[in-house]
Structure formats: structure tokens, C-alpha cells
Amino acid sequence: MPQTVKGVIARAKGAPVELVDIVVPDPGPGEAVVAVQACGVCHTDLHYREGGINDDFPFLLGHEAAGVVEAVGEGVTNVAPGDFVILNWRAVCGQCRACRKGKPWYCFATHNATQKMTLAEDGTELTPALGIGAFIEKTLVAAGQCTKVDPDADPAAVGLLGCGVMAGFGAMVNTGGVGLGDTAAVIGCGGVGNAAIAGARIAGATTVVAVDVDDRKLEQARALGATHTVNAKVMDAVEAVKQLTGGFGADVVVDAVGRPETYRQAFDMRDLAGTVVLVGVPTPDMTVELPLLEVFGRGGSLKSSWYGDCLPERDFPMLVDLYRQGRFDLDAFVSERIGIDDVEEAFEKMHAGDVLRSVVVL
């Protein structure tokens, strides 16, 4: 039978979020109901609330989540009731041209649950954030959005792999290809940028430079693996990175901000044959101008990274294992644990730069 549970919605653009009753249907073919244990408060959720994604209100917010599968629909074989899972927003189809080429992390036909969760008050259909909607006691997702991991892991920590941490780690490791002995730089040291820093350290980079304008974030970056920090508000970030890398520039530079000025900095602070990775999300009106001779003359590559070019079934279990071994400090990303009715306050803290991640614990 359908269940009525509590969840957090954004009813209209810019309006404070609300905790309301939501009807979750039984899982249909290819679907699963997951009892959410923890869900991080991500900038993307705030973008949804502000109408920055689309205007398909009301939104059921939350997507960086972990929990336990409660029920599955017909044909589901990858997970079963009782499995501890991390939710992802790219359930691959296995049939599109990217999947057929053996590159499912580029899947062009990712999918979500077919059925809709609804408001208990009047039956209005909800749009779940990134096809997940996890600021809720139980959520309905496509079974392919569930990745089974070590059940002894802390849900509040490993749930963050569902979006921001995976995006940053993957941008550096999967997209950027950082390796043993490389030098790396990261512009923007929020959750995504710090995950990129941790990724560079784990992959064996010898020099990892964190660039930001907030000393609090730079301190966190050093704790997560940065060997050097640069406050771009008080010094020339490009020159500082070059000085810290023997005068050459970094082998891999990740722009976790996504603005024309930070992208140009990333372009200028990379070494010959180096790689620039854009993982920060720009707005539709932003443009960048680059000297074409420099694009040609420096060689290397300019890349963008969507969800860290990850394959959840490959990457999530591996990163959870690194966490359990003490090699990837996911706990450091959890600034505070909050209740489901504290999301609006968490948005304010995030906007002020006071936290890496507030995590709703259910």
C-alpha cells in the first residue's frame, strides 16, 4: 500500500521550504522504495528552491543520500530489501550509444522512477531533486539509482558520495587523470573542491595547491590533503601556483567554481600538456574568451566533468572501502548533523560559507 511520510518541499521560487506529508507509492517495475537514513544539504537543492534549475514546482528536495532498501518492484535484481545503498542520479540505461561503446558514465539516457510521489493534501505531483528527492523518510527511485555498499559505513558520511564528493573526487581522478608524482591545483574549496583535493592526495599527487578567497575554507583544504594554500584575494593565484610547481604550472587544475575569471585562472596556471577540468556549474549567460594560440601551444586538454565521470556501481563501493580503511576522510565533510526540519537554516549556513555539508539525519 502507498505510504504517507514526512518530507521537505520547495513550493514556490524563493519561498522557505516546508515539511509536509507526502504519499510514496509502492514500487512498480524497475523501482525501489528506500528508507532514507541521511541526506546532505547541497547547493543544488538551493538552486532548485531558487528556480535556478527549472520551474517544475513543487520540488521534493534532497539527493545526497544513503539508506536501506525497503521494497522493490518487478524485475529488480541489482538490490533487495535490507540492502544498504547510496542513491545516485545517473541510473544508466545500458542501451544508448555511450553505453554500447563501453562508456556508461557518459550515458545519454539515464532514468528515474516512473511513478510520482505526491502531496498528501491534494495529490499534486512532486518533482524530486535530481530524480531522487531524499529530504524525506522514504523515497521512490529507479532501482538503478541504488548502489549497494558496505552496511557498516556511516550513512551521513557515505551519502555525500551521491553528489558533491563524487563530483569533486571524480573530476580530479576520473576526468583529470591525476597520477603518481603529478602536481594539482583546485580553485574553490567547498565540498566539491575539497573532494578534488582529497582525490589528488589519494592518487599520489606530490603537490596539491588549494585556491580560495576564504581562509576558513583553505584551512579545511589543508586538512583534506592540500600541501599548499593560496588566498586569491591577497595574491596572484596564477603566479603563486606556478611558483609552487617549479615555475611550470600544475599538471591538473580543477575549477570547482565555474566562473569566467576562475576558468581563465585555471587555464593560465596549468603546465604544458596539462589538463583543465571544469566541474563548477556556470550560469547560462556566462562566456569565456581564450587566446587560441595558447590553446594550441600548451597542448594538453580542456575538459568538463559531469558527476565526476563516475560509474556509481564501480566508484561508490571503492570509495566507501577507502573510507572504511581510513584513507578517505569522508567524516571531515560532515560539518553538522541536523533534523529534517532544519533544512532552511542549513541553506543559510551554506550560503554564508559556514559549513562544508550539513547532513539531515533521519
Rank of each mutant, 00 (worst) to 15 (best):
A15S: 15
A15Q: 15
A15G: 13
A15E: 15
P16L: 09
P16C: 10
P16D: 09
P16K: 07
P16A: 09
V17S: 08
V17I: 14
V17L: 14
V17Q: 06
V17R: 02
V17K: 01
E18T: 13
E18L: 13
E18R: 14
E18Q: 15
E18Y: 12
V20Y: 05
D21E: 15
D21Y: 10
D21S: 15
D21F: 12
I22W: 06
I22L: 13
I22C: 09
V23S: 10
V23W: 02
V23Y: 09
V23M: 11
P25A: 14
D26V: 14
D26I: 13
D26Q: 15
D26C: 10
D26E: 15
D26G: 15
P27L: 04
P27G: 05
P27K: 04
P27I: 13
G28M: 06
G28K: 12
G28A: 11
G28D: 03
P29F: 02
P29A: 13
P29T: 07
G30K: 08
G30H: 08
G30A: 09
E31G: 09
E31W: 06
E31C: 11
E31R: 07
E31L: 07
E31I: 12
A32M: 02
A32Q: 04
V33C: 06
V33H: 00
A35T: 14
A35M: 06
A35L: 07
V36G: 00
V36C: 03
V36D: 00
Q37R: 14
Q37A: 09
A38M: 02
C39R: 06
C39H: 11
C39V: 02
C39Q: 08
G40N: 05
V41N: 00
V41W: 01
V41H: 00
V41K: 00
V41M: 01
C42W: 05
C42I: 03
C42E: 01
C42H: 07
C42Q: 03
H43G: 05
H43K: 06
H43L: 01
H43A: 03
H43R: 13
T44P: 06
D45V: 03
D45S: 06
D45Q: 06
L46P: 00
L46D: 12
